[in-house]
Structures are given as structure tokens and as C-alpha cells.
Write a protein that binds this DNA or RNA. Structure first.
Length: 120
DNA sequence: CGCGTGACTCAGG
DNA sequence: TCCTGAGCCACGC
């Protein structure tokens, strides 16, 4: 019997699986959405240990500054960048990604717009 | 139960 | 902008 994963781990897996194509999220963001605002290192550990097993879109998870968390010339870096580009994510010359444009924004409940009131 | 190890993050210098 | 130190979290030994 293998030990059951913690709830945090389960949530992290589920959360990452929900990141939409063409969008990205940060370790910190995943951790917060999973209930632990300071569990970014845990997220990284989980990704490293079971991203393949759960077939997760690990490449959609970036560092808080919006850049790939691998050494610039590493195999992983190149692969991750290729996968993201294939989904339409563009990289700046310095290797950063425009988070304002690509970061996944989990929907909450949108009043969206305020209608001018017609009856007072 | 403590220790070491990470695909982390933030504050300083 | 790069390097450190400290804080944080999961997991295997």
C-alpha cells in the first residue's frame, strides 16, 4: 500500500490540470489556490515527482516573475518553451513572458458591469 | 521525528 | 541585475 497523498497534493494536481491551453500560472498561484499561500516549494516538489504520472501540463507553471524555472540552456528549458510557444505563448527577448497577458485568471463571480439604474 | 533536498519566493545589499 | 539568507512545504530516509 502506498501512502495516500495529502489533500494539498491532491488539490495541486487538480488545479494544475485546470490551467487552460495558452495560459500559464505561477507556483505561488497554484499553492494559494490549493490552500497554502506559502507552499510554492511544495508545488515544485510535487510537479517534479508526479507530473508525468498524472500527465499534467507542467510546462504551464512558471516562476513568479513569469519565466521558466530551468537553467537557460537546459533540455527542460528548451522543451518547456517549445510547448508553450506551440500553444501561442510568446516570449520576450529576455526570456520573460508577459504575465499580464497570459496568466491564468481563475474566475470568481463576475458582476462584470454596472448597469446604470433606470428607476430610482 | 529530525534532516536534507528541490522545477519557489521575497527582502536586502 | 545578480547573489544571499530566510521562510515555507512535501517527502524519503
Amino acid at each position: 500500500m502506498k501512502t495516500a497523498p495529502t489533500e494539498f497534493t491532491t488539490r495541486v494536481i487538480a488545479t494544475i490540470a485546470k490551467i487552460p491551453r495558452g495560459k500559464v500560472a505561477t507556483y505561488k498561484q497554484i499553492a494559494a489556490l490549493s490552500g497554502k499561500p506559502h507552499g510554492s516549494r511544495g508545488v515544485a516538489w510535487i510537479l517534479n515527482s508526479s507530473s508525468q504520472k498524472h500527465k499534467l501540463p507542467w510546462y504551464r507553471v512558471l516562476s513568479s516573475r513569469g519565466r521558466i524555472s530551468f537553467p537557460l540552456k537546459s533540455k527542460h528549458y528548451v522543451l518547456q518553451m517549445a510547448k508553450l510557444k506551440r500553444e501561442g505563448v510568446r516570449f520576450k527577448d529576455n526570456g520573460d513572458i508577459d504575465m499580464a497577458k497570459y496568466q491564468w485568471k481563475k474566475k470568481v463571480a463576475k458582476p462584470a458591469r454596472l448597469q446604470p439604474r433606470m428607476f430610482s
